[in-house]
Deep mutational scan, measured.
Amino acid sequence: SELMNSSKLIRMLEEDGWRLVRVTGSAHHFKHPKKPGLVTVPHPKKDLPIGTVKSIQKSAGL
């Protein structure tokens, strides 16, 4: 199965306009000026399962 580095996923979010608002432990929480909701990324993780990545991307509207 495909894995993604959390840094790469965070870069994709930031390029889309998401900004880090809070860190709780290894959970990084992002908000967007125009899009609704809060997106949480486990970080640092070298090997996020593709299912997790897809669900984060979906929440972020990517």
Rank of each mutant, 00 (worst) to 15 (best):
G17T: 01
S59W: 05
E2K: 07
T24K: 10
F30V: 01
E2L: 07
K58E: 14
L3R: 10
V53Q: 05
H29G: 07
S1N: 14
I56Y: 01
D16V: 05
S6V: 04
L13T: 00
S6A: 06
I10M: 05
G17I: 00
P44G: 05
V39I: 11
V21L: 07
M4N: 09
V23L: 06
L20K: 06
K58V: 11
V53H: 03
E2G: 09
V39R: 01
L9W: 03
L38P: 04
E14C: 09
D47I: 13
E15R: 08
K45V: 15
L38D: 07
R19F: 15
G51A: 14
F30L: 06
L38C: 13
H29R: 09
S6K: 02
E15W: 06
L9N: 01
L48P: 02
K46Q: 14
V39W: 01
V21I: 11
S7L: 10
K34I: 13
V53A: 05
G17S: 03
P33K: 08
P44D: 04
V39P: 02
K35C: 04
A60Y: 00
I50P: 14
V23S: 09
V21P: 00
M4K: 07
V23C: 08
Q57E: 08
K46S: 14
L48H: 01
E14D: 05
A27L: 15
G37C: 07
N5A: 12
Q57Y: 13
G25A: 14
H28A: 12
K35M: 03
E14N: 10
H28V: 12
V21Q: 06
G25E: 13
H32S: 02
V21K: 05
M4D: 05
G25S: 12
P42I: 06
H43D: 04
F30W: 02
R11C: 11
A27S: 13
L38S: 08
S59C: 10
S26C: 12
P42E: 10
T24N: 11
T52S: 06
I50R: 07
Q57P: 01
L3S: 14
A60F: 01
G37S: 05
L62I: 15
H32Y: 01
V41T: 02
K35G: 03
S1K: 08
P33E: 09
G51D: 15
S26V: 12
L38F: 10
K45H: 08
A60R: 01
P42V: 04
L48K: 02
P44S: 06
Q57T: 14
D16Q: 05
H28M: 07
L13Y: 01
R22K: 15
P49R: 06
K8P: 03
R19Y: 12
S6F: 04
K58F: 06
G51L: 13
S26D: 15
M4A: 09
I50G: 07
G37A: 05
K46I: 14
N5W: 06
I56P: 01
R19M: 14
S7K: 09
S6R: 03
